[in-house]
Design a binder for these strands. Structure first.
Lengths: 191, 191
DNA sequence: AACTATACGGAGGCTACCTCCACTTAGCAA
DNA sequence: TTGCTAAGTGGAGGTAGCCTCCGTATAGTT
C-alpha cells in the first residue's frame, strides 16, 4: 500500500523470505482490522497471511507491536498534517483544526487507541511510537496557542489529549456529536 | 456491607444456601476488585468465596452482571447525591458539582465503567442499570441548567457524558488533572 | 422420614495468547 | 555448482480465562 518501514530490528538487513512474510502479515492485518474491529485473533491474521503463528510472533512480539505497525503511517500522517497547520494557520485556528484532525484520527483508529491506552495503563514505562507522536504534535499546537495568548495557560497537553482522545473511546460517535464536543472543548480552552 | 438487593430472578424467594452464596460471592468480588483493578478471573472470585465456579455463573450469568451488582449501590449513591444537588443548589452550581461527583465516581469505578462501555459497544441493545442511572441523572442536571439559560442549548447529554466519562477511561489521572479538565468542560458548557 | 424442586461444583470444552525448538532455506563462499 | 550455516519458519503444546453441562447434594415441604 504505502512504503513499508524497514523492520531493521538488528543492524543486518532482513533475509528475503523474512521481508516477504513481514509484508504479508502487515497487509493481512490491515485487511482484517478494516473488516472486523480489533477483536481478531492473531492466529487468524497469521492464517490469512498464510504464515505460521510463530512467524507472526517473531516479527511482532506483541499484539501492540502489530497494531502499531499497521497504523504507523496514519499516525505519521497526523504529525505531518499538524506541521502544515502550524506553518500555515494562525495559532487559534491551528488548534481548532488540529482538534478536528486528532478527533477524526482517534475515531477511525479507535481500536489502536483503545489498546494503546490499555497498554500504557499496564506498563507505564512503555512509550510507544504512536504515543510519542501524539504527545509531540499536541504539545506543539497547544503551547503555540498559549504563547500567542489565545488559549488558557492553566491547561496541560495531557488534559487536552485526555479530553478529546478519551471521548473517542466510547463507542458510536456520530460526526455531529464529534463536532459538538470539539466546540465545547474549544470554548473551554479559549483564553 | 450495605443491604443486598434481592436477586429475585423468578417470583419465588431464594433458598437459604443460594442466598448465602450470593452474598459471599458479592463480598468476595468487592474485595477482589478493590485490591486488583478489574483483571481478576471469575475463578479467583469464586475460590475466594469458597464456592464453585458453576455457582458463580448461575448467580451472575455474565461478567458484567457481577460487576454491576458490585457497583450497584455506588451508582445509586451517585443518583441520590445528584437529587440532593438538584434540590439544594442553583442550576449552574448543581452542574458544577455534578461534574465533580460524576468524575470522581467514574474515576474510582474505572473498571466498571470501562467494561460497561465495552459491553455497550458490543451489544447496543443492552441497557444496563448503571447506564440508565447515569443517563438519567446527567440529563436532569443538564436540562435544568439549559432551561435556566446558564448552559449552552446546543449540547446533548450524551456529549457531556462522553466528555467527562471518556477521559476517565484513560489511566492515571491525578486529582489536579481532573479538576483542570472539569474547569475546561464547564467553561465550554457555559451559555 | 421421604420426596422433589432447587441449588451446588468442578470437569471439561472452547478460544486466545504466546513459547519453544526441530526443521527448512536463503545467501554466501569456495 | 555445491555445500555450509546463520537466519528464518511453523505448528504443537503450555497457560489462562470464559462459560456450560450434568451428576450429586440438600433445603424445605408434606
Amino acid at each position: 500500500m504505502t512504503a513499508v518501514a524497514e523492520p531493521t530490528t538488528s543492524g543486518r538487513p532482513l533475509r528475503a523470505d523474512a521481508r516477504r512474510n513481514y509484508e504479508r502479515l502487515l497487509s493481512a492485518a490491515r485487511e482484517v482490522f478494516r473488516e472486523h474491529e480489533t477483536d481478531t485473533s492473531l492466529e487468524k491474521i497469521a492464517a490469512r497471511a498464510e504464515v505460521g503463528i510463530g512467524t507472526l510472533y517473531r516479527h511482532f512480539p506483541t499484539r501492540l507491536t502489530l497494531l502499531e505497525a499497521v497504523y504507523r503511517d496514519e499516525v505519521d500522517d497526523l504529525a505531518t498534517g499538524t506541521e502544515k497547520l502550524l506553518a500555515s494557520a494562525e495559532p487559534w485556528e491551528a488548534l481548532e483544526r488540529y482538534l478536528h484532525l486528532f478527533m477524526s484520527y482517534a475515531t477511525t483508529k479507535r481500536a489502536l487507541f483503545h489498546e494503546l491506552v490499555d497498554a500504557v495503563g499496564r506498563d507505564a514505562e512503555l512509550l510507544t511510537h504512536s504515543r510519542q507522536v501524539i504527545n509531540g504534535t499536541a504539545e506543539a499546537v497547544l503551547t503555540r496557542a498559549q504563547e500567542a495568548g489565545v488559549a488558557r495557560r492553566d491547561v496541560e497537553v495531557s488534559d487536552m489529549i485526555r479530553l478529546v482522545g478519551g471521548c473517542t473511546m466510547m463507542p458510536e460517535a456520530s460526526a455531529e456529536q464529534s463536532d459538538r464536543i470539539i466546540a465545547v472543548v474549544l470554548a473551554g480552552l479559549r483564553a
